[in-house]
Design a protein around this nucleic acid. Structure first.
Lengths: 233, 233
DNA sequence: GCGATACTGTGGTCAGACCACAGAACGGGG
DNA sequence: CCCCGTTCTGTGGTCTGACCACAGTATCGC
């Protein structure tokens, strides 16, 4: 059976995963204490902690010190954080070329806006709110880019698909530092900001108007154009 | 500044990430030994290990016991494993609804096949190889589904986008157990297998023929139809 | 009845020990 | 001189025990 040496922390991870799959654990539930898990599974507490650390970084649990119902490790299942960390680290380690990340963002963003435009009902209040906030004058690049990220993320979230939203957030995070660095090299930032504002408005207008193909083309050009400028391709 | 207590393992993680970003570490490089990292950063070895465990599960490093150049923690940056683990765990913890995963797979797969079809040059030898292997008769559902996964993954990989390929692999892994469980409920498996084979051939033919829109529609129907049947929606 | 105190259980961290492992260094026999 | 077996060294993997800070709970004294 090519039996693996079965590293201790992996048995802990698998045990918790099976508890999750079989419904013995779910969002809001509390895991046994590290010491209990250690005793129950016959492994050292340090091995339990390594497994819990993985789950924490992946966004599956949250840990808190102290006592009471809020202390300990609690299942939360917030996917965004884990996805962001994973993509950011992979880009840093050159496992993901920057171009591939941008291309993937194009694919997802195209799908998001065209799906939104084609939908009968949609709630774009958050997107409109951010859109308005970006109209403020004299925003520094860093401030503007934060709002830009919020806008695109708001669109992804209003698609209602949590996986898409998490991936959008992760992809955006992965290239954040590069975008920020690239923005410093832009000569006339105010002109660039104006152009981005106009493109944003056009995209949202197309979505509101229900024109899926126009929205897709606009967002595609928006992202492509911006990264060509910033990443200098 | 709302200074965090700065958990020790996070210090290690950030230190390694900055080494990655600044190019002091890259694929193939070897990390300092756990004991050295512990001493250099002024944290306990267990904290170092928790950080390394995270990096290992995320697919950034590989660890090996023993001595010599191949031992220790080595940067590898293989994104597929981490993405699969993340998505699988999030689905298990109900952070990602199954429907959202399938929808996301639709988005990505649509983009993959239409991009492949629209491309002037493409290498589909691997896809054709798997396609031929699936023509064997009397394949058990489990065997067939393994090949099915390989086929779709081969298409994603031939797109040349590592992020897309990793996400495809991850999405497929996340729903693997559900697909397998659902296949057991299919009455006439041979008929289903024949239908899937025919659809696969049609998709590949459309790609080879350069008909992007047809390929997109075919793969969309292929996946939608199958999951409707298996997941019973 | 109420407020201050002590207790309990939690995660967070560290130090030290031992093991298995694989390469490197060393040594002896040919 | 070369080759092969032995020993050494450094690595990750694991466990144990200890201590801390923390937060809720129980207890005690008034």
């Amino acid at each position: 059976m090519s039996e693996q040496p079965a590293r201790a922390w992996r048995t802990v991870l698998e045990h918790i995963e099976s508890d999750l799959l079989d419904g013995r654990l779910g969002p809001g539930d509390r895991l046994p204490s590290e010491r209990d898990l250690s005793a129950d599974l016959g492994v050292g507490r340090s091995s339990v902690r390594e497994a819990l650390r993985v789950l924490e970084v992946m966004g599956l649990i949250r840990t808190a010190t102290g006592s009471g119902p809020q202390a300990g490790a609690i299942v939360i299942a917030t996917p965004t954080g884990g996805m962001s960390t994973l993509l950011r680290l992979q880009v840093a380690a050159q496992g993901f070329p920057l171009d591939d990340v941008v291309q993937t963002r194009l694919v997802i963003e195209d799908a998001v806006v065209s799906a939104l435009a084609a939908r009968a009902e949609r709630d774009l209040t958050e997107a409109h709110r951010v859109l308005h906030a970006m109209d403020a004058d004299h925003l520094a690049p860093a401030e503007f880019l934060v709002l830009d990220a919020q806008l695109h993320l708001a669109l992804a979230e209003s698609s209602g698909n949590t996986v898409i939203a998490a991936m959008m957030a992760g992809l955006r995070t992965a290239i954040e530092s590069y975008v920020l660095a690239g923005s410093a090299a832009i000569d006339d930032w105010d002109a660039m900001a104006d152009r981005l504002r106009a493109e944003h408005h056009a995209i949202i207008d197309a979505i509101d108007g229900g024109d899926a193909e126009a929205a897709r083309a606009l967002v595609h050009a928006h992202i492509t154009g911006y990264y060509q400028h910033v990443l200098g391709r």
